[in-house]
Design a protein around this nucleic acid. Structure first.
Length: 490
DNA sequence: AAAAAAC
């Protein structure tokens, strides 16, 4: 079977766009999925991201939109004919940009809507009419309810990161959205991981689906070296810096399980002079996009993030991923380490297992990825005594580190984003005394009768959520909800 | 347990 794009029965404008991007050969997921989508069948696709999944569904989908005019609407109108749903805003943004590129030589219009930013520009664009709409669930529902988006002409729905979209937190919103769509439609589901429940639930949304499995589901890329270290909670930050230095890591995602932990770690590393930035869901959308852009542009070396960044983000040539915390779900491990080793490149995934439940979580990962995990001790190159004083302050702090292959990681934060791309020489290390004595201690504004610092206020701000079904957590209720969802749909 | 997604 040919894998050449030029041999494919794709509309000319699409072929030109593909050629512009320098693609000649299809990736395996593309070679398998494109013909199936062109034929109009439902698809359940298991494929690692970074393998060209977005092109795999958008190209054939655009082709069908071009070839099959929607008879029920006049050519002057532009009803939404294809809807692509994603679980995070950054991902929606990324996919929308790709769709725009593929569609650039066609008359088809596309738009993206997600929360955290002004609704008005999105509304204006929707009112002009778009054929392809990329969205996150919450904001889309807002637009539907405001009658900005009419979805009764939708012919194609894509659920990317489908297992997340069908997860308990998203399911109610997703079901409401699907209830606005025509029953007669093509549905495409893609994910790198499928748990058995999700797979069963997913199949209830599909009609005679073709299953495409390029990688075995839940499989981790063979090009990614996976290392697990047993590291005490107090040593994790030092361990992170040591490994970055020893292995000469130029850029990495650093995954942390909580938003607050994420904000704190980023702040600590920043104070130590590392070029890093935090990305988590309690930052403003503007800050989120800026953080991601800075990382993409290489202005920061470490992106300290929550699982908001675990899925789908396609950033070229990131050599490493750290699991500073072992993820709560084994599936998230697969997604997290999928941020490196993309498009056939090699990558490194380093995970720190601390105390608590970590051993069990590691065992879960082992079971899911079907690979033996050896937990290694980490030889620390600095064995000065450590611990906390009774008042909670650190007895000492790591400084005066000598060896440092990497000026980049030692450049002061203030240089970050300098438009000349200038990197100052490594600064003199500051002394302990000049640092905040409450460095490692949870900062309580009441301690000092001050306002909370902005970083912490934002990290702590509770997400405003309507009390509702999305917070249902009991096992029984979750099971009931899944059951109901399965029997209701189609 | 946590995160994500709407004003």
């Amino acid at each position: 079977m040919s894998t050449l794009y030029s041999d494919l029965a794709l509309a000319d404008p699409l072929k030109r766009a593909v050629a512009d991007m320098g693609y000649e050969h299809m990736t395996p997921i593309q070679a398998q999925a494109i013909p199936v989508v062109l034929s109009g069948q439902d698809v359940m696709g298991a494929a690692q991201t970074g393998t060209g999944k977005t092109a795999a569904f958008s190209l054939p989908l655009l082709h069908r939109l071009l070839k099959h005019e929607n008879a029920s609407t006049s050519p002057a109108r532009h009803p939404v004919r294809a809807l692509v749903l994603l679980p995070t805003r950054e991902l929606a943004d990324q996919v929308a940009q790709q769709v725009k590129l593929y569609a650039k030589y066609t008359q088809l219009r596309s738009a993206v809507v997600f929360g955290g930013i002004d609704m008005k520009p999105q509304t204006a664009e929707l009112k002009k009419g778009v054929e392809v709409l990329v969205a996150t669930p919450g904001r889309l529902l807002d637009h539907i309810e405001a009658k900005n988006a009419v979805l009764n002409q939708v012919e194609y729905v894509v659920l990317d990161e489908a297992d997340r979209m069908l997860d308990i937190g998203f399911l109610p919103d997703l079901q409401r959205i699907l209830s606005y769509l025509p029953k007669q439609r093509t549905t495409l589901l893609f994910s790198a991981t499928f748990s058995p429940e999700i797979k069963r639930l997913a199949s209830s949304y599909l009609q005679d689906p073709i299953t495409i499995e390029v990688a075995r589901p839940n499989e981790t890329a063979s090009t990614v070296e996976q290392v697990f270290y047993g590291v005490h909670e107090d040593d994790k930050r030092r361990a992170l810096k040591q490994i970055v230095r020893q292995r000469g890591i130029t850029q990495a995602f650093v995954f942390v399980n909580s938003k607050l932990g994420c904000a704190r770690l980023a702040r600590s590393l920043e104070r130590e002079g590392l070029r890093c930035t935090a990305l988590h869901g309690d930052k403003s959308q503007d800050e989120r996009l800026k953080a991601l852009a800075a990382f993409k542009a290489g202005e920061v070396d470490l992106l300290v993030c929550t699982d908001v960044a675990a899925r789908g983000l396609d950033i070229k040539d990131v050599p490493a991923v750290f699991n500073y915390d072992v993820p709560f779900n084994a599936e998230d491990y697969v997604h997290r380490i999928g941020r490196t080793g993309r498009a056939g490149a090699s990558g490194l995934a380093v995970s720190f297992a601390g105390g608590g439940n970590d051993a069990r979580l590691v065992a879960d990962i082992e079971k899911l990825i079907k690979k033996k995990i050896e937990l290694q001790p980490l030889e620390m190159d600095d064995e000065r005594p450590r611990g906390r004083m009774n008042d909670g302050r650190r007895r000492w702090r790591e400084d005066g580190e000598t060896g440092d292959a990497r000026d980049a990681l030692d450049a002061p934060r203030s240089n970050q984003g300098s438009s000349e791309g200038y990197r100052a020489p490594r600064p003199q290390r500051t002394t302990h005394a000049s640092r905040d004595p409450f460095f490692d201690k949870p900062y309580e504004a009441s301690d000092r009768g001050e306002e909370k610092p902005a970083w912490e206020a934002s990290a702590k701000a509770p997400a405003p959520r309507q009390p509702g079904s999305t917070n249902i957590r009991s096992k029984r209720k979750v099971a009931a909800l899944f059951k109901a969802a399965e029997t209701q749909q189609n």
